[in-house]
Simulated assay, not measured.
Amino acid sequence: MKTTKILYWVFTILFAFVMFGSAIPDVLMQPAAVKGMHGGLGYPIYFVPFIGVAKILGVIAILIPGFRRLKEWAYAGLTFDLIAATYSLYCTPHPDGPWYFMLIFLALAACAYIWYSKKQDLPATT
C-alpha cells in the first residue's frame, strides 16, 4: 500500500514536471517554441499558447487531491498531447531529435496513470 502511493507520487511528479516544463515556453511564446511548433511542425501561431495553457491546467488537475473524473480527463488530455506531438515529429523530420525519443514521455504518462489507477483501487483509510 505504501509502495503504491510512493510510486504514484514519483511518477506523477515526474510527469507533471515534464509537462509543466514543456508548457512554460509555449505560454510565454518563446521563439524556440514558436519556431518548433509553427516553423517546424506547421501549427498555427495561436495554437502555441493555447496548448501551453491546456498543459498547465492538466498538470494542476493531476496534482490537486480529489476530483477523480477531472484527473481522468487531465491524464487523457496530456496523453493525447504527447501522442499528437509524437505523431507530428514522426511525420515531419525534426532537427532537434528523432520522434522515438517521445516514447520515453509516453511511457512516463502510462506509468503515472497506471499507478494512479492502482492507488484508486486501494481501500480507503480513515
Results as ranks from 00 to 15, higher is better:
61 A>D: 05
34 V>D: 01
46 Y>A: 12
41 L>K: 02
59 V>P: 02
73 W>I: 13
45 I>H: 09
67 F>E: 14
13 I>C: 09
46 Y>N: 10
115 W>S: 03
92 T>L: 07
12 T>P: 00
54 A>K: 02
6 I>F: 10
55 K>Y: 03
121 D>Y: 02
75 Y>T: 01
11 F>T: 01
47 F>N: 11
23 A>S: 08
36 G>S: 06
80 F>P: 01
102 M>W: 12
45 I>K: 14
112 A>C: 06
93 P>L: 14
6 I>A: 10
89 L>P: 00
62 I>T: 01
69 R>S: 08
29 M>L: 15
70 L>K: 04
94 H>P: 00
125 T>W: 09
107 A>S: 13
44 P>F: 09
59 V>A: 06
26 D>I: 09
66 G>H: 11
4 T>M: 14
62 I>G: 02
20 F>H: 01
113 Y>E: 02
18 V>G: 04
24 I>L: 10
21 G>L: 04
33 A>I: 04
122 L>A: 11
72 E>M: 05
84 A>L: 14
77 G>R: 02
31 P>L: 13
75 Y>K: 00
67 F>R: 14
60 I>N: 07
106 L>H: 04
20 F>L: 13
58 G>N: 00
65 P>I: 05
66 G>V: 10
71 K>E: 01
38 H>M: 13
46 Y>Q: 12
30 Q>V: 14
90 Y>E: 05
108 L>A: 05
104 I>E: 11
39 G>T: 08
35 K>H: 13
91 C>K: 13
10 V>Q: 05
26 D>W: 07
103 L>Y: 08
36 G>K: 03
105 F>T: 04
54 A>F: 05
94 H>D: 07
2 K>A: 13
98 P>E: 12
29 M>N: 07
35 K>T: 12
34 V>M: 06
94 H>Q: 13
58 G>V: 00
26 D>T: 07
21 G>P: 00
59 V>M: 12
45 I>D: 12
110 A>C: 06
70 L>E: 03
71 K>A: 03
74 A>D: 02
